[in-house]
Simulated assay, not measured.
Amino acid sequence: MLKLGFLASNNGSAMRAIVDAIAAHRLCAHACVVVSNKAESAALPWAQGRGIPTRVIPTLPDAGEADIALCEVLKAAGVNLVILSGYLRKLGPRTLEAFAGRILNTHPALLPKFGGKGMFGRRVHEAVLAAGELETGATIHLIDGEYDTGSIIAQRAIPIPTGADVAALEELVMGAEASLFVETLNRIQTGQLNF
């Protein structure tokens, strides 16, 4: 069984979709813990309301200390797959090593386009529209030591509707990210996808 640890800085929309899929028996997995680097993250009370343990590990002056704390929390919770759901902090070497090949992120564009440091949330959608792209999409990828450079596990392309603005594009992609993540986790759980 997939034992999931979620990292979310704000709303954790992909996390919410995955937890809802578990509750609806559309995904055989267990949500072990939700960790945020922000005490005010909306993901935390949402998870607590569903009985999922939560932790706050703030961005500390000593990044190594935060990395050790995060790694220990994930291990103590029995996590075997880490899911980043809008986690706006780079993972440290301890966590990357302990969960190598078992950390997945969702990105609101078709990587390798529109990725990298500082490319998250609405910034991505603004860049996609500014570039005049005809399609965008969602990407699930492995985390490595850099921003958005890990191996791509799954993608879904979405045509950009005529006249779409940033808010409309964000909503469209957010829905695609959530469903793609649930489908990808199901493929991992059933052994159809190995990485």
Rank of each mutant, 00 (worst) to 15 (best):
N105A: 04
A100W: 03
A109E: 04
L70C: 09
M119P: 01
A47T: 02
P161L: 01
L169N: 12
P45L: 15
H107Q: 06
L180R: 01
G49Q: 13
N11L: 15
A178F: 02
M119R: 09
G145H: 02
T136D: 03
L172H: 07
K90D: 01
S41F: 15
E72I: 04
V182Q: 08
T184A: 09
G12K: 09
E72N: 11
L180T: 03
K117F: 11
E135L: 08
L169S: 14
I68D: 12
R187S: 08
F195A: 08
L74N: 09
L88W: 11
I57N: 07
A14G: 00
L91K: 06
E183Y: 05
G51F: 01
A109Q: 07
A69I: 12
Q192I: 07
S85K: 01
G12E: 11
S36R: 12
A42N: 14
V33N: 06
E40F: 15
V56C: 14
L60M: 15
I188N: 00
C28H: 11
N37Y: 13
I18L: 05
L70H: 06
A17R: 09
A130D: 15
L111M: 02
N80Q: 04
K3S: 02
V35R: 06
D165S: 10
G5K: 08
A66Q: 12
N194E: 04
T59C: 14
C71L: 04
S85A: 13
E72H: 09
L172S: 10
V33H: 01
D165L: 02
P159D: 03
V34F: 07
R102W: 00
I103Y: 01
L111T: 03
A157R: 12
P53K: 10
R156Q: 06
L104H: 00
I57L: 15
L74I: 07
A109R: 08
S151T: 09
D165M: 13
T95G: 08
L129Y: 10
G92H: 13
C71D: 14
L172F: 05
E135W: 01
Q189W: 08
A69E: 12
E65N: 07
H125D: 11
P161V: 04
C32Q: 13
G150S: 00
G51A: 07
K90G: 05
L44I: 11
R122E: 12
G101E: 07
P112M: 13
V173N: 03
A176S: 14
M119W: 08
E97F: 05
K3M: 09
I68E: 14
P108D: 00
K75N: 02
G51I: 05
K113D: 14
A14E: 12
I103P: 05
F181G: 00
G175H: 03
I83M: 13
L91M: 02
A168G: 15
P45I: 14
E72D: 15
L129A: 03
L104W: 03
A29G: 13
A43E: 11
P93W: 03
G191N: 02
V34A: 11
I143W: 01
F120R: 11
N80R: 02
L7F: 12
L81G: 02
A157L: 00
E171G: 14
I83K: 04
D165H: 09
D20L: 05
V19L: 13
H141Q: 03
A98W: 01
E133F: 06
I22F: 03
E40P: 12
A23G: 00
A66H: 15
H107E: 06
L185A: 08
E65R: 15
L81Q: 04
P93A: 15
N105R: 08
E146I: 01
I103F: 05
G101Y: 00
A31R: 03
A23T: 10
